[in-house]
Amino acid sequence: MPKYMLIMRADDRAVEAYQDLPFEQVIEAMGRYNEEMMKAGVMLAGEGLSDASEGFVVDFDAEPPLVTDGPYGETKELFNGFWILEVASKEEAAEWAKRCPLGPGSKLEVRRVTELDDFPQDNEWIQKEAGWREEQAQRAAKA
């Protein structure tokens, strides 16, 4: 079954609208949404991101890359969080995305997560990456 990442993006409009809502209400709506996906056995992971003012950008237009503090001047939309779902089809990912409690100014970008089989298996770097993943997991296991 394929995995999809739901990436939450919001513009100023959405951010302002959210600031007008009681925090409790926002948390409850999101909590309910997450619970629904857990109960359906499809949610593998999900995280929210802290305020963009805490973040920064590394811009590769410059050489060496330029580090700029948030919230990023020209940017109209900010990433706020993500979910990873394991579902039977693209349509099922879309159906779950549509149920997210978001309002005008918000978008969910839905992208399929690549699997090992998406890449040529004889490539040296693909094999190395697989090795790194394994090392990481073993370190995590022993920690």
Binding site: A40, A88, S89, E91, E92, A94, E95, W96
Partner: peptide
């Protein structure tokens, strides 16, 4: 386009997705 899928196959898959849920 998502709300009114025109391609019958993708419409069928969308119904199946709702049904699974």
């Amino acid at each position: 386009a998502t709300a009114r899928p025109t391609d019958p196959e993708s419409a069928r898959r969308a119904v199946a997705a709702v049904w699974r849920i």
